[in-house]
Design a protein around this nucleic acid. Structure first.
Lengths: 137, 137
DNA sequence: CTGACATCTGAATAGTTGTTCATATGTTGG
DNA sequence: CCAACATATGAACAACTATTCAGATGTCAG
């Protein structure tokens, strides 16, 4: 026979209720899930990804230089940085009329790093990048 | 003593052209950026995140059980799994009329794992989207 | 002061995305 | 064969998001 079926409180049919209950108990809270999804979403946009990768590589850059490295308009960069700033992913230090941004979140930095090391080639900060050249523009 | 300014081929003003050039050379290609953004985007949805976390925890689950653990409709689950399947993040093995899914991507598994171990670290602040938030955080 | 400059911001727009509803495919048992 | 079932799929819709444009701050030089 197939695994015995069952019905939970909501009337949904289950195949393996024990496992379902086990998994359900092990799942993060909705709040944690939402937070995690938020972080991944921030990394899920090419523009922001180029922005963050630039900061990961350059350490500290002003808005106009970031616009240059990412091929985005300065306005788009500013909007994106505002979002990242709101999530405490980057921090800003203003000097005169410039605003210098830096990556300021260890969690995101690790995710970024791990992500980058697995996309075909290795472009990280820590590894020796001698003779290693991205095929970027 | 302001940093010397310069203008690149496109007429954009730069503050630190050397650094910009260095960063630009180190950035991943557009293709790699798009690919990475794709992966992160897949992890950027609460529903898919619960699905993947369920699979990470349960190992192998059928669609209806996944619907139970994630509190999604079976249709929504199926749609989500189709996306994940298309990106080779999950694999399916059919037995009878059931379809059993499993997490089948080491890269994603690591990102997920790293993300989960840090839940709670990142405090999301939505100044423009959240009117008021009493609880949580 | 004024004008040039770097960045920020709001509103509008265009594109994308997740969900639902209805239906299709394919499987099992009678 | 059939009906019940598990899953898959397509179309439609609502919600969200990233960009652009125009204008607002705030800063520096003269």
């Amino acid at each position: 026979m197939v695994a015995r079926e069952a019905v939970d409180e909501c009337g949904v049919k289950l195949v393996d209720p024990d496992k379902v209950e086990l998994v359900r108990a092990a799942l993060p809270s909705d709040h944690d899930i939402a937070e995690l999804a938020d972080v991944f979403s921030l990394l899920g946009d090419p523009g922001r990804l180029r922005l963050l990768t630039s900061l990961l590589e350059g350490g500290e850059l002003c808005v106009c230089d970031l616009a240059a490295t990412t091929a985005m308009s300065e306005s788009a960069v500013s909007h994106a940085l505002r979002l990242l700033r709101a999530h405490r992913v980057v921090s800003v230090s203003r000097r005169g009329r410039m605003a210098y941004y830096r990556l300021d979140d260890g969690h995101v930095r690790m995710l970024l790093d791990l992500g980058l090391t697995h996309t075909g080639h290795t472009v990280a900060v820590h590894p020796e990048r001698t003779a290693k050249k991205a095929k970027g523009q």
